[in-house]
């Protein structure tokens, strides 16, 4: 799924879009625990999280995750947007819960990591 398609499914707002949102995603992982995210081996996936800190962006950068969806109406800061843009990370803000967001995206075809 493309970035805008993902945003549309969850009534989300695209905050940063790398390469005009051309990247395609086929897997997702939902967690507020960055230590869990850092154990994943997969690339090119979407992280669904309610943890809106600079360390969320850093974690995605280290784990080669190119898209983060911030759920529960969490807002990203200007510093987070800058770091995400510099690191080539797409960001979507979404007002739905993590459960609802995950359900909608699962239904739309995004695969779980395990």
């Amino acid at each position: 799924m493309k970035l805008q398609e993902i945003a549309n499914k969850i009534d989300g707002r695209v905050i940063t879009a790398t390469n005009n949102g051309s990247m395609t995603y086929d897997m997702a992982f939902a967690s507020d625990l960055m230590s869990d995210v850092l154990t994943l081996q997969n690339d090119n996936m979407v992280l669904i999280t309610g943890l809106a800190t600079l360390q969320t962006i850093r974690t995605a950068e280290m784990a080669d995750i190119n898209c983060i969806i911030f759920v529960r109406n969490k807002k990203v800061t200007a510093e987070m947007v800058k770091l995400a843009s510099d690191s080539g990370i797409d960001i979507i803000e979404c007002r739905y819960s993590m459960f609802r967001t995950s359900g909608l995206l699962f239904q739309s075809g995004l695969k779980p990591v395990y």
Partner: peptide, 30 residues
Amino acid sequence: FSRAGYASSEVKKKLKQLNVDLQVIKRVVV
């Protein structure tokens, strides 16, 4: 905490410049 990860990010950029295998880079920087 706002700076945590800065050094690791710099190392990641250097390893990419050196054309180290991407899977190796990921393991190292994590």
